[in-house]
């Protein structure tokens, strides 16, 4: 299935976010092998060079590790994954704050809304 991409961000960044999220969620477990460049390119519907760049950038951030001739693997360093989860969450929190500001909603109301959403829909508190 081809992925949907937004127009304002380079695709490699969107792919990085996508893979990071899967690592945070535990869809991709520590030490797990990522799909080959060609396979992911075909699955996501992107250029193989874009996937190579995605893997390279993820490796630079120590989120994945490439082993010569074997492929690319999710890091086994738990602290790195924890840090990744925190930074991804912070990005989402910023986005939420921005959207609320755009609607002219103040901090207390926004936090109230968040509280409400959590209680209403349930979730792992």
């Amino acid at each position: 299935m081809a992925m949907e991409f937004n127009d304002y961000q380079p695709i490699y960044q969107q792919l990085m976010d996508h893979i990071s999220q899967r690592i945070c969620r535990g869809d991709l477990t520590p030490g797990e092998k990522l799909p080959s460049v060609r396979l992911l390119a075909a699955e996501a519907g992107v250029n193989p060079n874009t996937v190579s760049r995605t893997y390279m950038e993820l490796e630079r951030e120590n989120i994945v590790e490439s082993k010569r001739g074997q492929g690319t693997f999710v890091t086994t360093e738990q602290p790195v994954i924890e840090e990744l989860r925190r930074s991804q969450a912070a990005v989402q929190a910023d986005r939420f704050k921005y959207s609320m500001e755009q609607l002219g909603i103040d901090k207390d109301t926004a936090i109230g809304l968040l509280q409400h959403a959590w209680d209403e829909k349930g979730g792992s508190s």
Partner: peptide
């Protein structure tokens, strides 16, 4: 269309 593009990225040596 999807199939054709997939074939190209799978088999082209970029």
């Amino acid at each position: 269309r999807e199939d054709i593009l997939r074939l190209i990225v799978t088999h082209l040596d970029v």
